[in-house]
């Protein structure tokens, strides 16, 4: 399902706009994909920001300062599908169907107004077979890297079967983080605590 279209893009990030109902908007940390048809490349990215925009008529702004806004007016305004801007961090690409997924920056950014799709569980599982994209996330600028990675790992773990497969994946993620953050024990510990918390929540 197309959840939005590309508004702007650069090599590392892109932004798509959406008017779908808020309940259908993919969540922080989710893996999405789009295509660059000129390069026949599928580009994968992680959602790291979701911004609520004012509607074109300025109704939201007016309503937000109105003293006597009625609940039914607010509900009506919400049903008008106020636009959202969703920021995505590029973490991988696939040059042609059937080719292996590569973790890294795509050869070109996505093109404007191309559709964005949420990845389904099998695609998430396939993408997270390798964890090389962790480095891209950890080194990203102006991105809540640690939170993003923790959210992504939680979502990816959710695509695995409960029990050993999920535990094995969580440990593999932790070990990759331990390798990448061996120089920063405090940051590593914070991330591992997050993983541990998520894991215990699952077990609970």
């Amino acid at each position: 399902m197309i959840v939005g279209k590309v508004l702007r893009a650069n090599m590392r990030t892109f932004v798509f706009g959406t008017r779908i109902p808020e309940s259908d908007v993919p969540t922080f940390g989710a893996l999405v994909q789009t295509r660059n048809p000129y390069r026949q490349a599928t580009i994968y990215g992680l959602i790291y920001d979701i911004a609520l925009k004012d509607d074109e008529r300025g109704m939201v702004k007016l309503m937000s300062v109105a003293n006597d806004a009625r609940d039914e007016d607010i509900e009506w305004l919400r049903s008008q599908l106020v636009p959202l801007e969703v920021s995505v961090l590029c973490v991988g690409y696939q040059m042609h169907d059937g080719q292996p997924i590569r973790h890294g920056l795509p050869p070109q950014p996505p093109i404007a107004l191309h559709g964005i799709e949420c990845c389904e569980a099998p695609e998430i599982e396939a993408f997270t077979q390798q964890l090389d994209f962790f480095r891209l996330v950890l080194e990203a600028k102006d991105v809540p890297c640690d939170e993003l990675l923790a959210a992504t790992i939680r979502l990816a773990a959710g695509t695995r079967k409960k029990g050993t497969a999920r535990d094995t994946f969580a440990v593999a993620c932790g070990r990759e983080l331990a390798r990448l953050l061996s120089y920063d024990g405090a940051r590593l510990e914070g991330l591992l605590r997050r993983l541990q918390y998520e894991r215990n929540s699952h077990h609970g």
């Binding site: 440990v171 932790g174 331990a178 390798r179 061996s182 993983l195 541990q196």
Partner: peptide, 12 residues
């Protein structure tokens, strides 16, 4: 914790 130990063991 065993989970954390599994991660640290052999990495850090």
């Amino acid at each position: 914790d065993d989970f954390i130990a599994q991660i640290y063991r052999g990495t850090t």
